[in-house]
Nucleic acid binder design. Structure first.
Length: 455
RNA sequence: GUGGAUAUAGCUCAGUUGGUUAGAGCACCAGAUUGUGGUUCUGGGGGCCGUGGGUUCAAAUCCCAUUAUUCACCCCA
């Protein structure tokens, strides 16, 4: 048998215990806050029917879907002509019926429609699961990563948007990350497109101005021209792209600019209401109304959110928005939803690079018994059981090895205390407890030991 | 899908205009220390120099191909 070099597909990762503990700390923190705001958990399968996923994320998204080869005779539906001509899109349909989910929002829309009779609307759910994208990996970009979604469907109220802002603030407060939350509204973007007479090109326009801070003004104009936006139209948007000042100043300016666009004005009203309401409580994230925030996902229809770390550049660590019509493709009309997604993996990268994890998040064992041999381990096992039942994470070294080896094991595992029970201790009915941080040792009874480790 | 960079020990990397037996740090194992970890000292195991071809008396080093990794673009968490 030839030796195989162990490896995993690009863009995927293994997680060592120390990393997994830290990741769990992020998941637990986020989950606790979701529950505090009364969202309910659901899960959906990793694989969905391709018909559910295709066409929801635009052309680019379709390309990034992982597709699953049909089982059995997967060539059954193909014709020789299609194979010879390499008619890829047709062959894809014939070879694959399933794919890995690309995000949690579209499967959730499918879920809502499928289970509409079992759901209590307005439905507030959260979902923490991995998603997969057949992307080229790079910094902060993986092919398998976790999203932590919160969504409300079946309510048009802006209170939901507000609540999401509070959740953003709470999550990043707990995780100790400085953030800026950018807000925009798709209706404003639609209004702008309407005013300049390019309504049908709204997607191209928004994607172009979304790049403003990245490629600069000239390149944005270049891109707009490339998308066949007329010079007259470009001239018209100029003051909008250069919009600056406080959130209030931007709103006033836009209200003026959009005065002939009903949809645009309603977007401005929504933003104003959200900013207004958000002053009712303390928020630990800087709120910025950013007209250039577009986000590619073309199902957003109202509010758009994006959160970035202020201290570590890695793209957005949370994003989302309102989607009014996502369920209608699955046959349920007039159900509006709004939600955001926290990118747990990018949050991990931020916290890891800024060293924001609390110390307690990287160890789980509190106490280890040294194994001195058969007689001693039989004495220790009931003690260990008692310690465990009082809620202390603990273990016994499974082999009678050199003490040194056992101590090294405990040290590497970050175990706080080591218990040594040899012949002398057995005779005295005591346990020698060593604090691995200070090196101090003391002789305790079982009850004293439990008390000492419980506070 | 487009463009750039890199590939040497488990990890991070040295390696001279091509020239003896390819090195270091960290990690790992053992000993100094038979009931005590972290620090220190001593010793040890580890390498088809990504893979295939070419040039040369001679290739980790130069050339070509290939694969993998990585960064950026597109797009996105």
């Amino acid at each position: 048998m030839t030796k195989q070099k162990p490896s995993i597909p690009q863009g995927t990762r293994d997680f060592l215990p120390i990393e997994t503990l830290k990741r769990n700390y992020i998941f637990d923190s986020i989950r606790n806050i979701f529950q505090k705001y009364a969202y309910l958990p659901i899960e959906t399968p990793a694989i969905e029917k391709l018909s559910t996923l295709m066409g929801k994320y635009g052309e680019e998204g379709d390309r990034l879907l992982f597709k699953i080869l049909n089982s059995g005779d997967f060539l059954k539906k193909t014709t020789n002509d299609d194979l010879i001509n390499k008619n890829l899109s047709k062959l894809t349909n014939q070879l694959c019926e399933k794919g890995l989910r690309y995000d949690l929002t579209v499967p959730f829309a499918r879920f809502v429609v499928q289970h509409r009779n079992d759901i209590n609307f307005p439905f507030k759910r959260y979902q923490i699961q991995p998603v997969w994208r057949a992307d080229r990996p790079q910094k902060g970009r993986y092919r398998e990563f976790y999203q932590c979604d919160v969504d409300v469907v079946g309510s048009n109220s802006l209170l939901n948007e507000l609540e999401l802002i509070q959740i953003i603030s709470d999550v990043f407060t707990v995780l100790n990350i400085n953030t800026i939350t950018k807000l925009n509204n798709r209706k404003i973007l639609s209004g702008i497109a309407e005013i300049i007479g390019e309504s049908d090109k709204i997607v191209d326009i928004t994607i172009a101005i979304d790049k403003l801070d990245k490629i600069g003004l000239d390149k944005v104009y270049e891109e707009l021209r490339r998308k066949n936006i007329s010079d007259d139209s470009i001239k018209l948007i100029e003051p909008i792209i250069n919009l600056s000042g406080t959130n209030e100043q931007k709103i006033d300016c836009l209200r003026e600019f959009l005065q002939d666009s009903d949809i645009g004005l309603s977007g401005v009203d929504e933003i104003e209401t959200m900013l207004d309401y958000s002053k009712l409580f303390e928020l630990n994230t800087e709120i910025e109304f950013d007209i250039t925030l577009a986000r590619g996902l073309n199902y957003y229809t109202g509010a758009i959110f994006e959160v970035k770390s202020k201290d570590y550049a890695i793209g957005s660590i949370c994003g989302g928005g309102r989607y009014d019509d996502l369920t209608s493709v699955f046959g349920l009309k007039d159900v509006s939803g709004v939600g955001i997604s926290f990118g747990a993996d990018r949050i991990y990268d931020v916290m890891s690079n800024l060293d924001l994890f609390p110390k307690k998040s990287n160890s789980s064992t509190k106490l280890m018994f040294v194994n001195f041999g058969i007689k001693e381990e039989k004495h220790c096992l009931p003690l260990l059981a008692k310690i465990r039942s009082s809620g202390i994470n603990s273990e016994i070294y499974p082999d009678k090895a050199k003490i040194k080896k056992q101590m090294i094991y405990a040290n590497k595992k970050g175990i706080e205390y080591v218990a040594m029970v040899g012949e002398d201790e057995i005779n005295e009915s005591k346990i020698k407890l060593k604090n691995m941080n200070t090196g101090k040792q003391s002789l305790l009874s079982i009850d004293e030991l439990i008390l000492a480790l419980t506070f």
